[in-house]
C-alpha cells in the first residue's frame, strides 16, 4: 500500500485521490495498471513516483511503432556471433549473444521492480496480444538456449496509453484501468507549487485563469497541457511580466500553443 504522502514527497508529483486508490488496487491484486489520459497529465511521471515511493528500481520500456513484443523479452544477436566466429572467438556459448529486453530484465531481476511500458498504443495492433502469455505466466522461453526464465517477483507493471489506437479486449481484461482527468484549477495550483519554490500569487492566479480560458477555446486543435503551463510560467517569471497584462496581451503565447492555427484562433478571440 502506498499512502498519499509517500507518493507526493517523491519528486514533484501531485496525485489525485482516485488515482492513488487505483494504484493501490493494482498493487494488491497484482495486476498491470493501465493509465490513460490527455498528454501532459502525468502518466509517465506516475511510474517514477510509484517506483520512488516504494523504493524499487524502475525499468522503462519505451514503445515505438516498430517495437515488437519479442524485443521486450530478448533479442538474439546472430550477426555478432557470426563475426566472432570469423576471428576464432569462442561462440559455443549462445547465451552471451542473447540480450534481454526490459520485460526480460524485469522478470530476471533479483528484486521486485517497477516496469513502465510507455505509450503502448504506439506499437502495432497485435503488440498487446503478443504479451498476454508472458504477462499471465510471468515466464518466458529463450528458444536459442532452451532456457525458461521465471519471474522471481511479479514486477509492478504500469502501462500508459494516449489512446491513439484501441487496445484489444483480451489485454484490457487483464488490466486495472484508470483514466487521469485533466487537473482542475485547485489541483493545478498544487501542481505548480510543487514545481516552483516561490511564485508570485498574483502571477499564478492570472496565468492559470488565462490558461483555462485558452483551453476552453472552441476549435483548438491541440489544447495546452500541464507541462506547457509550467514552461509558460517559467518564461513569465524570468521576464518579470506584470501579472495585470497577462490576460490582455498573452505574452509568450507560443510556449502554450504550438500550432499556427491555434495561435491565430486564440489571438483573434482576444
Amino acid at each position: 500500500m502506498i499512502r498519499q504522502s509517500q507518493l507526493e514527497t517523491s519528486q514533484s508529483y501531485v496525485a489525485a485521490e482516485d488515482l492513488l486508490k487505483t494504484v493501490n488496487i493494482a498493487l494488491t491484486l497484482e495486476k498491470p495498471l493501465l493509465v490513460k489520459g490527455e498528454p501532459g497529465t502525468g502518466k509517465t511521471m506516475l511510474a517514477h513516483a510509484v517506483a520512488e515511493s516504494l523504493g524499487k528500481e524502475l525499468l522503462i520500456w519505451n514503445i515505438k511503432s516498430t517495437t515488437k513484443a519479442q524485443d521486450g523479452l530478448y533479442t538474439y544477436d546472430v550477426v555478432q556471433r557470426l563475426y566472432d566466429s570469423q576471428f576464432g572467438g569462442q561462440v559455443d556459448d549462445i547465451g552471451q549473444y542473447v540480450h534481454f529486453g526490459k520485460l526480460g530484465e524485469a522478470f530476471r531481476s533479483e528484486d521486485q521492480v517497477v516496469l513502465l511500458i510507455d505509450e503502448i498504443d504506439k506499437a502495432d495492433l497485435e503488440f498487446p496480444n503478443d504479451l498476454l502469455w508472458e504477462m499471465d505466466q510471468m515466464e518466458f522461453y529463450v528458444q536459442e538456449t532452451k532456457e525458461t526464465f521465471r519471474a522471481k517477483h511479479r514486477p509492478i507493471v504500469i502501462i500508459t496509453s494516449n489512446a491513439e489506437k484501441e487496445l484489444p479486449d483480451a489485454f484490457l481484461r487483464r488490466c486495472i484501468f484508470h483514466y487521469i482527468e485533466f487537473p482542475n484549477r485547485v489541483q493545478m495550483r498544487q501542481i505548480v507549487h510543487a514545481h516552483f519554490d516561490r511564485i508570485d500569487e498574483e502571477l499564478l492566479q492570472q496565468a492559470v485563469s488565462t490558461f483555462y480560458n485558452i483551453r476552453s477555446t472552441p476549435g483548438l486543435m491541440k489544447k495546452p497541457s500541464t507541462s506547457e503551463l509550467i514552461d509558460w510560467l517559467r518564461a513569465l517569471t524570468l521576464d518579470g511580466i506584470d501579472p495585470a497584462v497577462i490576460q490582455q496581451e498573452l505574452p509568450y503565447l507560443g510556449v502554450l500553443l504550438k500550432k499556427d492555427k491555434d495561435f491565430n484562433l486564440v489571438k483573434k478571440g482576444k
Binding site: 486508490k21 487505483t22 488496487i25 491484486l29 493501465l34 490513460k36 486495472i176 484501468f177 483514466y179
Partner: peptide, 17 residues
Amino acid sequence: GFYFLCRAVLLRDESEF
C-alpha cells in the same frame, strides 16, 4: 471505496465511465 474498486476493475475505457 467500493465505487473506485468497481471502476478500476470492471471498466476498461473512459467512455464507459
